[in-house]
Design a protein around this nucleic acid. Structure first.
Length: 103
DNA sequence: CTAATGACTGTCT
DNA sequence: CAGACAGCCATTA
């Protein structure tokens, strides 16, 4: 594995696995290279990919106010300007389970 | 082919 | 507590 296309597919699969009202981080989508996750999500035009549920490790949205409002609309708990990761963050294990069928 | 960049992150100053 | 640095990988110049 580890072909560029394969990595991209896995990252998108994980991103899609995040349930509404929860969030995940770039590091969780692809631990060895978070930047890659960002690039994939940024360049991905496919529908069904909840890009707004992907935030930085500290919980701050990467897309500013727009993303923040979308998340609030889904019921994501906020602590000031950033997401309450302790509550809304999806465990890596959960993502693994949900994407188990896609790899 | 080399260099720089980006929706990142953890560690070290 | 804020800034710098090195690792990571695809894309672009």
């Amino acid at each position: 594995m580890s072909s560029p296309d394969e990595r991209r597919r896995l990252i998108l699969a994980r991103a899609r696995a995040v349930p509404e009202g929860f969030v995940t981080t770039y590091g969780d989508l692809w631990p060895p290279a978070p930047r890659l996750a960002g690039h994939v999500i940024a360049t991905c035009d496919e529908p069904g990919v909840p890009w707004q549920r992907i935030v930085r490790a500290d919980g701050t949205p990467t897309q500013g106010e727009r993303q923040r409002r979308l998340l609030r609309g889904e019921g994501v708990p906020f602590a000031g300007a950033r997401v309450s990761m302790e509550i809304a963050r999806v465990p890596v294990e959960a993502l693994d389970d949900l994407t188990r069928g896609d790899r």
